[in-house]
Design a protein around this nucleic acid. Structure first.
Length: 324
DNA sequence: GCAGGTT
DNA sequence: AACCTGCAACGCATT
DNA sequence: AATGCG
């Protein structure tokens, strides 16, 4: 069954924002008819760094609520893995795939019919703003959705290019690699879009064909990556072990697998200052101010206001990924 | 962050 | 009542 | 079979 109406994914109204403000550090927030229990909103989850302020739980709540309409495109009908940081970066952080115990009954769940053993648990499927806010209350800083939807868990919706910098990879090297993918995709007449990860790397998301399996997307990204790597062999290593890569970048096509996830567009990263994974236009690869952690919780709303969501161009696109 | 178990 | 603990796991490559 | 890797 598809998720609810897009009203479920709307940003808060002015009245709802005011109500959140009035809670102070703790209370129950009614968002689009759903009550979410919030606590420790003033608690620091991510520390300040340089000019960037600390990120509190309240800041995270405001971020996910404000970006809910964008999150819908990448989270609706998908299981999501969580990186939770309840006690900040100095405390214990942990990954979670199962629905957290004590989750409200209105949180949507999905059990992978092919799961066995330890995987056979209910997973969280975010179905609107209230769910996003509850996840923020759970201190789920990073949201990593599946590439496939729960309605067709074996159909890959995107082919994912992961440019993973090595020890000696400069930002300019990463940009060189991204530009080569830009050229290759243009020559193939394929639509795709890059985003900065908020950490060190870049990813490129390429919509797949609606009936593509993970073997198809994996093969396509491997072939494309080997083509790109062949042009600049001095920048790319195909060695498996990190200590044999000579500091070079890895083009990690193995992310194209059923249970693997990449950080969602607009997700905060668990790092000081709260950097955000932000979709960019291809031409921004040539912007000398671009950085992998260019935007953070404090300034990403302004970025969205001026540039919108370049990934919107990918929504609903289906295209055949050729054999190269 | 929170449930569940242990001291 | 205070404290402690768990909270992910797939596919590929190499040894 | 076990480990490294993301």
């Amino acid at each position: 069954m598809a998720s609810g109406s897009s009203d479920d994914w709307r940003s808060p109204t002015d009245d709802e924002w005011d109500a959140l403000e009035e809670l102070g550090d703790e209370g129950t927030w009614e968002m689009a008819g759903t009550e979410v229990r919030l606590s420790s909103l003033d608690k620091e989850l991510l520390p300040a760094i340089d000019e960037r302020p600390e990120v509190t739980k309240g800041d995270l709540v405001r971020h996910v609520a404000g970006f809910a309409p964008q999150f819908e495109h990448y989270l609706a009908d998908r299981a999501v893995n969580l990186l939770r940081v309840p006690d900040g970066l100095d405390g214990d952080s942990f990954w979670q795939q199962a629905v957290p115990q004590g989750a409200p009954e209105w949180v949507r769940r999905w059990q992978d019919p092919e799961a066995t053993g330890r995987q056979a648990h209910d997973r969280v499927v975010v179905d609107g703003t209230a769910s996003l806010v509850w996840l923020a209350q759970m201190a789920a800083v990073e949201l990593h959705p599946w590439t496939s939807s729960v309605t067709s868990p074996d159909v890959a919706d995107y082919a994912l290019v992961d440019i993973d910098p090595g020890e000696d990879t400069t930002w300019e090297d990463s940009l060189t690699l991204a530009r080569l993918f830009r050229t290759a995709l243009a020559e193939l007449d394929l639509v795709g879009c890059p985003k900065v990860t908020g950490k060190r790397g870049l990813q490129i998301w390429v919509p797949a064909g609606g009936d593509a399996g993970f073997d198809d997307t994996s093969r396509f990204v491997e072939q494309l990556s080997r083509h790109v790597g062949g042009i600049v062999p001095e920048l790319v290593s195909w060695r498996w072990r990190t200590d044999e890569r000579q500091g070079k970048a890895r083009l990690d096509y193995t992310q194209n697998a059923r249970h693997k996830t990449l950080v969602a567009p607009w997700s905060v990263r668990a790092a000081p200052g709260g950097p955000v994974s932000v979709p960019i236009g291809w031409d921004e690869l040539d912007d000398e101010d671009l950085r992998p952690d260019r935007w953070c919780v404090a300034d990403v709303a302004a970025r969205f206001e001026s540039a919108g969501d370049p990934f919107a161009a990918l929504v609903g696109v289906t295209q055949e990924l050729p054999d190269l």
